[in-house]
Structures are given as structure tokens and as C-alpha cells.
Design a protein around this nucleic acid. Structure first.
Lengths: 339, 339
DNA sequence: CCGGGGCAGTGTTACGTATAACGTCCGTGC
DNA sequence: GCACGGACGTTATACGTAACACTGCCCCGG
């Protein structure tokens, strides 16, 4: 009757000679003991023949939820966030949930309303590497989980990485190799994770005799990092013997700077990364870095959100803030201090 | 009246002392000449005070569309696809559309139904680097646009890259440098783009005197590429002097193989990439490669879908297949043939 | 012979929105 | 004095689904 339009459950019902309610029952899977096996078969056959797909908008309206989560990340082109997405999407799928990404390719600012432009109906939000107050109040009271954010109390459930510990480990590693003039090549991004790292770097070197900590800030891009590293290496005073970078991408820029200045890595200059992206082992020398379990962050975030939505059991006994461990991976971009 | 539940347009109506229809009119923006400025103000004030957000599921049900597109990609962790997404999402946002990603982190196989697990209601599908028949018939008749796929006639609208031309250009470049023993380090993936490349490589060398084309296949990963490159470089017969790789990631593996074998790039071995990812300039030497306008692919795909949905004007005069040009970028990983 | 209870399904309703069709009031022109 | 029309809103309805409450019906125990 409905021409070429998409068939509805009522069309299926007509075709199977039953009522719409029965179709809903059968296709919804809760027909045990309510509908005979034979009728159920007829319904399924008709649904298949017509190519019936339930209208998800109607279902969501009826059910009051969408089984879809919104993931807000600064930039998917950064492998770290792509992996966070993969982890979140994996867990989501296990529970029949979908994941929508915040539709802006350029990142979220306070001036923009993330939820105004989220076209898809969602049940909750996972926001990565953002200030919580950039979102609070805007979400319309939607359940919220933060990733890599300031675990301010009180606040939403948060999944963080032990970045301070990571910086500490890598600083100790450099110190053990004899380095004292270490410059922190820091990402010029105002977010919790980078603030914590800068702090941890200073703290880790505080008790070390003869330590000469330095810092140079730059945007999160190879070229910017190269320029910043050149500045750090050619500035006044004795040259640093190690560059502790806030990411593998920055470390790649640091390596380029070293080459441009005729310094060998690690003989003349040690360079360390952070993240352990695939880039880390593509470079020569391979980067000493800190491995961040990006997928695990996304997965834990999604689990926390699902627990908050009552769609999955709260496995972690309801810890509001979970902190995932990181791991120092020593490769060949760091070595004994030569100077 | 509704406790702590999310306010509906009816709640706003009650608070503003008007009918629900008026709220819908005002908030929908089509109240010109139907509602007085004063009433409209009251409504907006009430909506703001209650923190009203329209229920998108209900809106979609009423309107019959969702203003959301599904993007299916093999793996977001590959920078190319992340950039395709960015391009698509950018155009989508301009038209008030959202983008959902296919929720599987592991890629799509014929055994899986992409649309069964797409939880969000969608208006159309953009599928990248897939066989069209893996989708046809499954989509439930949803408008479909293909990316980087076989433009078989008849078939869905398709946005492709001139990859054959890219391979041709880079092969000519190598030939002009004096190379004759060139091995194609090919991705072991059965898709249109890689089939076309292998074909174009053979064709480009067909007319070259003394040419010794070779081929080695491997998975799309650095380590697999390294092993394959080692095989290509240590096999029987004279060693190839150039490795033409199906991607920058493979080229990175090839460079690692060269280092392992004590070959200098490009003095002893030229290596070319494909894609022009950020990786290309992170490596030393920087990769000669073919720049693929990934964002433009995503953007064009989204424009084609929007045109098909009638949500945007068909700018390209309705070409069913559009092919975007690619560009050879010569850097320092290729050089004159020494052997 | 009658009541009770399980089986197999159906009628009906509500979810929240957008919009077509329909009132109502009041100033105005003749 | 009265019909008329514009300005301003309202009433009612439909979208497709899920689920509650209900209805026959048959079988069985008493």
C-alpha cells in the first residue's frame, strides 16, 4: 500500500496477517510464551521479505533513550584521539550503543555550543581533554564523563592517565643517564594534562643536584616543535643535553631540529616522546616514550558512562575518578649524557 | 509539573502562557507575521529559563529525516580516514548535518551488517574504500555515496582520487632519475584503489626500455612493510634501486628496512610514499610522495550525499563520478639512481 | 456444569514535535 | 452599522514504535 516508501511495522503486520503489536513483540525479541513459534516465523519472514528496518527515531521517542553517546575530542587526526574513539566504540558496540562524534573538525571552544550542533539524539556525553566548565550547564543535564581532565571535586566521573607518573619516570630515566640540562618541550595548550606534566617535570628535577630544567612552549605540530627545539638548543647559556617532549609529534620535530643543527640523536642529544603513537617506531632512532593506553581510556570512559546510564553494571565499584597507569618504553632516542 | 525530567515544548508553553504550537513556531524560526514580537520574546525567555532542548528523536519522527549521515571507514586510526572524516564533517556542519561513524573499530566485513548496528537514525550513507556490493541491498534503500571505490556503472555516486595518475607521475619521476629496477611495495588489501595502483604501475613501466618491475605485497603496517621490503631487497637477482610504496606508512617501513640492511636513502635506494600524511615530513629523509586531498574527498562525498538528499544544491551539475586530482610532491627520499 | 487459568494475540495509548486548518478580536472602509 | 480582512494564536493530528491492559478460547479440575 505504501508504494516505494520505507515499510513500517504496520506494513509487516498486514503482510503477515497479524497486528502491529505482534510484529513489535516478535521483532523485539520478547515474545517468549506470548506468540506461537509459527506466527513468529511468519512475521520474521514477512519482515525479511519487505526489507523492514525499524524506524530508530520512533523507537527512541517511545523508549526515551537512543543508545547513542556523543564523544567530544579536539582533533581526530591526532592518532591518540582516534584510538580513544576506537576504544569507546568497541565497548559501546558490545552493549548495543553507537557513538557520535562532535561534528566540528576544528575543536570546541567556549563560544560554541557542542550540543546545539549535535544533530543526533544522544543519551550522554564523553568529553576528552576539555575544561569541565566549558560543558557544565550546557549539556542540558545529560550524563557526562570526562577524559584527561581536571578531576575537580565535585565534578563528573573522570578517566585520567597517570601522566605525572609518566613524566616522573621519563625524567628519572634521563637523570639516570646522566642528564642534568633537560628542557621540557611543552605543548602550548591550556588543558589539565599539560599543566600536570609541566608541574611533574619541575617536581621531578627539584631534588636533583645540578639540575638545569628548561622549558619551551609550542603548538602541537611538527614544524612548530622543530622551531621551538631550535630555540631551545641555540639559546644563551649551555645547551640542554636532553629534550623531554610532550608528545611523539613534538619529539619528531625535535629530531628534525637536531638534524638541522648537526646534532646526533642520542649521542649529542637525547629526545623523549610521549603517547607511543605508531610514529614512535617509524622514526630513526626509534623514540623512547611513555605509552598511553588510549583505547583503554576510551573504553573506561564509555564503561563509566554506560554505568551512569544504567546500561551496564558499574564494574569499578563506583569510583568517581579512575586513573590508568602508563608505561615507560625505552628505545634508542635517549642515551648516556655525552656533554 | 514534570519534576526533574527534561522539559518539553509543552512545559515551555505552560511557563510562557501560550500553546505548544506557538512554542514550536517561535523556536522553529518560522513565526514571521504569525506571532507577535512580544510573545516570541516571552517564549524564548521561558525556554532559556527552563533549559529547554528539543527532543531530536521526536523531531526526526515528525520530519521524516534526521539530518545525520553515516560514514563508514575501514580504520579511523589511519590519518587518511581521519582527514576524510574531517572534510565530511565540515561540509555537514555547514548544512546543519551531523555525522555518525560506523561504530566498529575493526572494519567492515561482508559478514557484518553495518546498518544493523548503526544505532543512530540516519538519512544516508557514505562508504569509503569498500566494495559496493558489500553494501547494496543492505542499506535498506538509503541514499548511498561511495568513496575511493570502483565506479562501476550503474552504481551509486562515487568520489575518487586520480590514483592511477599519481602512480604514473611517481613512476615517471623515478624513471627520470634513472631507475629501472623498481619494486612496487603494495598493500595487501583487496580494494579498488590498490588494484588500480598495481595496474597503473605495470602500465607506466611497460614502455620503458630495460625496466624491471617487481612487486611485493604486505599488510598496511610499518613492521609488515619492513619485512616485505627486506624480502624485496634481499631476494634473488639484482637488487631494486627504488621502492614505490602504496602509502607513507609502508614507505616508513621500507626506510627501516633500508637502515637495517645498511642502505642509505636515497643514495643507495630511493623510496616513495603515497598519501602525504604528516608522517611524510617527520621522517628523515622527508618522503617524496603523492599528496591525496583527503579532506576534499570527504567534503565532496558529503556534498554529493546532500545533493542526493535534496539538502544542498547539486553544484557539480550531477556528475555521477567525480575524480579529484592528486599531486606529486618531490622531497628527499628519492634521488638519482646510483646502481 | 461451571469456574479458573494459561495461551495467543489484539486494541489502544503515549512518547514530543511540526504544521495544516481553523478561530477570534479589532480596526477600517463604505 | 456592518462586512471584511489582517494580526495573532490555538486545536487537532500524524509520524512509527513499544508495551499495558484486555479479550477470546480451550483445557482441566471439581
Amino acid at each position: 500500500m505504501s508504494g516505494s516508501a520505507r515499510p513500517t511495522s504496520r506494513d509487516v503486520a498486514r503482510a503477515a496477517g497479524v497486528s502491529q503489536a505482534t510484529v513489535s513483540l516478535v521483532l523485539g525479541g520478547k515474545w517468549q510464551g506470548r506468540v506461537s513459534e509459527r506466527t513468529a516465523g511468519t512475521v520474521r519472514e514477512a519482515a525479511g521479505r519487505l526489507g523492514y528496518r525499524p524506524n530508530l527515531a520512533a523507537r527512541s521517542l517511545r523508549l526515551g533513550h537512543t543508545r547513542t553517546a556523543l564523544l567530544v575530542v579536539p582533533a581526530l587526526t591526532h592518532e591518540y584521539f582516534a584510538r580513544v574513539y576506537a576504544g569507546a566504540a568497541g565497548v559501546a558496540e558490545e552493549h548495543g550503543f553507537g557513538v557520535v562524534l562532535y561534528p566540528s573538525p576544528e575543536g570546541v571552544g567556549p563560544a560554541r555550543d557542542p550540543f546545539g550542533s549535535a544533530r543526533a539524539a544522544i543519551d550522554g556525553v564523553i568529553a576528552s581533554s576539555m575544561a569541565a566548565d566549558a560543558l557544565t550547564g550546557i549539556g542540558g543535564g545529560l550524563p557526562l564523563v570526562m577524559l584527561d581532565s581536571d578531576p575537580a571535586d565535585p565534578g563528573p566521573p573522570t578517566v585520567n592517565l597517570a601522566v605525572a607518573d609518566g613524566i616522573r619516570q621519563i625524567t628519572r630515566h634521563l637523570v639516570a643517564l646522566g642528564h642534568r640540562r633537560i628542557t621540557h618541550l611543552a605543548a602550548d595548550v591550556d588543558s589539565w594534562t599539560f599543566r600536570v606534566r609541566a608541574e611533574a617535570f619541575r617536581a621531578a628535577l627539584a631534588g636533583v643536584g645540578g639540575a638545569r630544567p628548561g622549558a619551551e612552549r609550542c603548538a602541537l605540530a611538527i614544524d612548530a616543535a622543530r622551531d621551538a627545539a631550535v630555540r631551545a638548543l641555540t639559546g644563551p647559556g649551555p645547551r640542554p643535553t636532553a629534550l623531554l617532549c610532550d608528545g611523539d609529534v613534538l619529539a619528531a620535530g625535535a629530531c628534525k631540529a637536531a638534524r638541522a643543527l648537526g646534532l646526533r640523536v642520542p649521542a649529542d642529544l637525547s629526545v623523549s616522546g610521549f603517547d607511543d603513537l605508531s610514529l614512535a617506531t617509524a622514526l630513526d632512532p626509534e623514540l623512547t616514550t611513555v605509552r598511553l593506553p588510549a583505547e583503554a581510556v576510551g573504553a573506561a570512559g564509555m564503561r563509566a558512562l554506560l554505568a551512569r546510564l544504567g546500561a551496564a553494571p558499574a564494574r569499578d565499584a563506583g569510583e568517581r575518578v579512575v586513573e590508568l597507569p602508563v608505561e615507560l618504553v625505552v628505545r634508542s632516542s635517549t642515551g648516556p649524557c655525552g656533554g
